[in-house]
């Protein structure tokens, strides 16, 4: 019977490896660069859909609810502002402020999703007015290639909003458990960056879908 004794050089190797870990500042910069490169690659996806919109619609657009579009845009801007406030709170050690603002941002993101999926897509086939404003959209996926572009653009964006909300809630929970400090809060910064990127995409999608060109007859 033989017994295993841990070789001394295993511990030495572990200690040497620990010494070779890059400093936190270097890791942070690498994380930032990696996330920006990821977002840059996403521009090609969203940009291709934007090009498809101009190729297929030209100087026209479908008859969408202006009020729903404006509401969704304003709500998304509010959410971006709350994320900025949450990030700033964490950087200055205000954990309560961070939690409050990230939760508000997630709520606003959910309101955006509801306005797109329930009202504009009208997945439940509802109808109704509020102060003379039609609340639910008429465009369906079966309306041809023009509507296909609309659903592709808003669908891909809504998917990113959904993952963004999940990220914000995960970071909120980690923050609640005290896993971030003002000096070490890459998760907060990274999720915030992703959320702002989703907002930037909508900054271009909103006018392209709702405002540019004349309404198709």
């Amino acid at each position: 019977m033989t017994s295993y004794t841990k070789p001394i050089h295993d511990d030495q190797h572990a200690a040497e490896h620990a010494n070779h870990e890059p400093p936190f500042e270097v890791q942070l910069q690498s994380n930032r660069l990696g996330l920006w490169m990821f977002m840059f690659s996403e521009i090609f996806l969203f940009g291709a859909l934007l090009v498809a919109r101009f190729y297929l619609w030209g100087d026209t657009r479908p008859d969408l609810s202006q009020e729903v579009g404006l509401f969704a845009t304003v709500v998304l801007l509010f959410s971006s502002w709350f994320v900025y406030r949450g990030q700033t709170s964490m950087e200055f050690g205000d954990r309560q402020g961070f939690k409050r603002n990230f939760l508000l941002a997630a709520a606003m993101g959910t309101a955006f999703l509801i306005s797109v999926v329930v009202f504009e897509w009208n997945v439940f086939g509802l109808s109704g007015e509020l102060f003379g404003v039609e609340l639910f959209g008429h465009l369906t996926i079966a309306d041809g290639v023009e509507s296909g572009v609309f659903f592709a653009m808003t669908g891909w964006h809504a998917l990113h909003v959904t993952t963004g909300i999940l990220l914000l809630l995960i970071m909120w929970n980690k923050g609640r458990r005290g896993e971030f400090t003002p000096d070490r809060s890459w998760g907060v910064e990274g999720s915030g960056l992703y959320w702002h990127f989703v907002d930037v995409v909508w900054v271009f999608y909103y006018p392209a879908l709702y405002l540019m060109g004349t309404v198709m007859s």
Binding site: E25, L28, Q29, R32, L33, W36, S80, W81, V83, Y84, M90, E91, P182, D183, R184, S185, E189, G192, L193, H196, F197, D199
Partner: peptide, 13 residues
């Protein structure tokens, strides 16, 4: 909002 300048200035939080 995205603090893009942190990419080349290397600021910490």
């Amino acid at each position: 909002f995205m603090h893009v300048s942190r990419l080349w200035r290397g600021e910490s939080h």
